[in-house]
Each structure stands twice: as C-alpha cells, then as structure tokens.
C-alpha cells in the first residue's frame, strides 16, 4: 500500500530539480518554468497531506495556489517581454542594468 513518505519524497526530488534548474540555467523563460516546477512540487505535498489526513482544506489551498500561480505566470511573462523589448535578450547574465 502507498505510504505518504513516497509522495513527500517525490515532492522533495522535484523541488530540488527545480532549485538546480534555477541555479544553472541562464534563459529567463526556463528559470520561470523551473519556478513553476517547484510550485507543483509543493502542491503535491499539500495534496498528499490533505488526502492522508482526510481533511479537504489542503486541496482548497492548492486551488488558491493554482490561481496565484496563473496570475504570477501572466505578470512574469509580461516582465520578460518588456525586458526583451528593451535589451533584445532574455539571458539573465546579460541583464545587469541594476548591478554595480
């Protein structure tokens, strides 16, 4: 039978892959997708806790996290488009206007 540890372990591995992706990639769009991956990993642990406790509040929280993630994706991609229009690149190592 499935234990909750398996789901939490999968969530931890996916979260760490997201962290490594944010650290090693240089394309801003891919970094953004890795952030979405980390959000999904946390959602998975919330759903598994909700299911194994028999309490539905965790799934409601995942619903709101999905709504906030959609809003975040829209605003973040708009910012990436604005950066691209002014710098003609989405490489985060070349976007250094605020770096001294």
């Amino acid at each position: 039978m499935l234990e909750i540890d398996w789901f939490l372990g999968l969530s931890a591995i996916m979260f760490s892959i997201g962290i490594v992706g944010v650290l090693i990639r240089r394309n801003a769009v891919v970094i953004f997708m890795c952030v979405e991956l980390m959000l999904n990993a946390v959602n998975l642990s919330l759903v598994s806790f909700s299911s194994f406790h028999g309490n539905i509040d965790g799934q409601i929280l995942v619903f709101f996290a999905l709504a906030v993630a959609a809003a975040e994706a829209v605003v973040g991609l708009a910012i990436i488009i604005a950066i691209f229009r002014n710098n003609l690149t989405v490489d985060v190592t070349e976007i250094n206007l605020l770096r001294w």
């Binding site: 939490l8 760490s16 650290l23």
Partner: peptide, 16 residues
C-alpha cells in the same frame, strides 16, 4: 548547484 540540490533533498528526507 548540484551540491546544493543534493543538500536540499537530504535535508527534506531527514525531516520526513
């Protein structure tokens, strides 16, 4: 980056 990712995995597994 890989060391940091492995450290995060180990930390979460330890807490689980």
């Amino acid at each position: 980056a890989f060391v940091l990712g492995a450290a995060v995995v180990g930390q979460i597994f330890y807490s689980i």
